[in-house]
Write a protein that binds this DNA or RNA. Structure first.
Lengths: 233, 233
DNA sequence: CGTATGAATTTTGTATACAAAATACGTGAA
DNA sequence: TTCACGTATTTTGTATACAAAATTCATACG
C-alpha cells in the first residue's frame, strides 16, 4: 500500500483553469471590473462550461472574481479601497506568522534567512527588481513555513492574489525600496533573537508601510487620470 | 431606475445548497472525516450533480470540505490541531477589527455595546447559554461592523464555520464562562476609551483564552475516548 | 490461507442539452 | 426625440449523458 501515490495523475481541468485564470487576473490579462461571459472563456480555453463554472466559484472565494446570481461573473476591481482593506489583514496574518515562527524556527532556517537577506541586499544594490521580489517572497515564505500553521498558510495564499494584483498597478518607489531593505534587516534581527512579539510588530509595520507607499501612488495616479471634480467649472 | 432591485429573485440552487450543507456540517449532521458521495447528497436534496458540485467547491474554499481529485469530497475533520490552527488566526483578525473599530465607532454604537454587555451579564447570571452565545455574537458583530472593512468581514465569515464547529464538540466550562464575561467588561472599557491597541490586545487574549479552555477539554475528551497508547502493556 | 490479477461496478470529470431569466433590439406612441 | 412596451437574442442555471478513473469483488495462483 503506497501511502501517497498521487502527483502522478493529471489534474482535473477546473484546477488547471483556476491557476490559468488566477494568473491572467493577477497580471491584468483580464480587465478589472469587466464582465466575463462564460462562453468566451470556454472558447478561449477550449473547455465546456461545467469545469469553467467550478473554477469561477473557486476564484470567487479568493475574491478575484465577483459572482452575481443570474448576472454572471465580473473580474473583481482593484480599487484603492480594496487594497487598503486587504493589506492590514495581510499585515495581521504575517505578524501572527512571525510570532509563531519564532517558537519553532531552527538554526538552519535562520541561517537560510540570513543568506536570503544578503541576496536581497545584493538584488537591491544592482537594481534588480525581479530578483528582489522573488527573494522577498522566499523570505516571507520561509517565515510562514516556520510558523507551521497550514490553515494560516492557506489563508494568506487566498489573499496573495489580491495583494499581487496591486503590484501590477504601480512600481515600487526608490525610497520605499530602500526602506523595505532596511526593514528586512530588522526582520532578520528579530528572527535571530527569536523575539516573536517584536518580529510580529515589525512585519505588521513593514506591510503597513508598503500600503502607505502604494496608496500614495494610487491616489496620485487616480488624480492624474481623472481630475473630473476639480476646477472644472 | 431603482439602484439595487435585487433580493427579489429566487436564489440559485447552488447558493441554497451551500447554506444547507454548511449548517449540516457545522452542526455535525455530516460526520467529520467521512466521505460524501455526490449522488447521495443529490438524492437527499433532490438536485442534480452540477449545482451540488459547485456548492462543494464553495465549501472547500471555506475549509469545511476537502476535495481530492478523482477521489471525491470528504467532510473536513475537526481535530484539535485544526482548532489550534484556526483560533489564533481568528484572534489576529478580531484584534485588527478592534483596532479599526476604535477609529470609527460612534457614541451610539458604544451605547449599543454597553447595552449588549448588560444583556450578556444577565444571560450569564440566569445561566442561559443560548442567549449568551447570541449576544456574544452580536457584540463581536458590532465591533466588526464598526471596523468598516468588508474584506475583513468576509475573511472572518469564512473562518466562522470552522470556529462554530468547535462549539458543537464541547460545552463551555463554568470557570471559562465567568472569565469570558469579565473579559467582555474589559472589551467594553477599551471600546469606550477608543483605545484600539488595547482593544486589539484584549480581543486577541480573549480568543486565546477561549482556545486554551477548548483545547484542554478536547485533550481530555481524546484521552477518555482512546487511551490506547497508555499503560496498555 | 494470503496475495495478486482482472473484470464488474461505482464514482468522478466533462460535455452537451434544455429551460428560465436577463439583455438587446426594434417598433410605435406621446 | 424620448419613453414604453413587446419580441428576439443572449446568457445563465440546471439536468442529463457519456467517458475515464477508482473501487470492489471474484477468482486463480503461490
Amino acid at each position: 500500500m503506497p501511502g501517497e501515490p498521487r502527483a502522478i495523475a493529471r489534474r482535473p481541468l477546473h484546477d488547471e483553469l483556476v491557476e490559468h485564470l488566477r494568473d491572467l487576473i493577477v497580471q491584468g490579462g483580464l480587465e478589472p471590473g469587466s464582465k466575463v461571459q462564460e462562453q468566451v472563456l470556454c472558447d478561449q480555453f477550449d473547455v465546456s462550461r461545467t469545469p469553467l463554472r467550478e473554477a469561477l466559484r473557486s476564484l470567487a472565494a479568493e475574491g478575484l472574481v465577483v459572482l452575481t446570481p443570474r448576472r454572471g461573473a465580473t473580474i473583481a476591481a482593484v480599487t484603492r479601497q480594496d487594497i487598503e482593506e486587504a493589506f492590514p489583514i495581510v499585515g495581521a496574518l504575517e505578524a501572527l506568522a512571525g510570532e509563531l515562527a519564532c517558537r519553532n524556527i531552527s538554526d538552519t532556517e535562520i541561517a537560510r534567512a540570513a543568506q536570503l537577506q544578503r541576496d536581497l541586499v545584493a538584488s537591491h544594490d544592482r537594481d534588480d527588481l525581479a530578483s528582489y521580489s522573488a527573494i522577498n517572497a522566499q523570505i516571507h515564505a520561509l517565515i510562514l513555513k516556520a510558523a507551521d500553521n497550514p490553515t494560516l498558510t492557506q489563508q494568506l495564499k487566498s489573499l496573495d492574489g489580491r495583494v499581487r494584483r496591486a503590484r501590477y498597478l504601480v512600481n515600487i518607489s526608490g525610497v520605499r525600496w530602500a526602506a523595505a531593505v532596511a526593514e528586512h534587516e530588522l526582520i532578520l534581527k528579530a528572527l535571530r533573537a527569536r523575539d516573536g512579539k517584536r518580529l510580529g510588530e515589525i512585519l505588521k509595520l513593514h506591510i503597513a508601510n508598503k500600503l502607505t507607499s502604494l496608496s500614495q501612488q494610487l491616489r496620485a495616479a487616480e488624480e492624474a487620470a481623472e481630475p473630473k471634480k476639480r476646477a472644472a467649472g
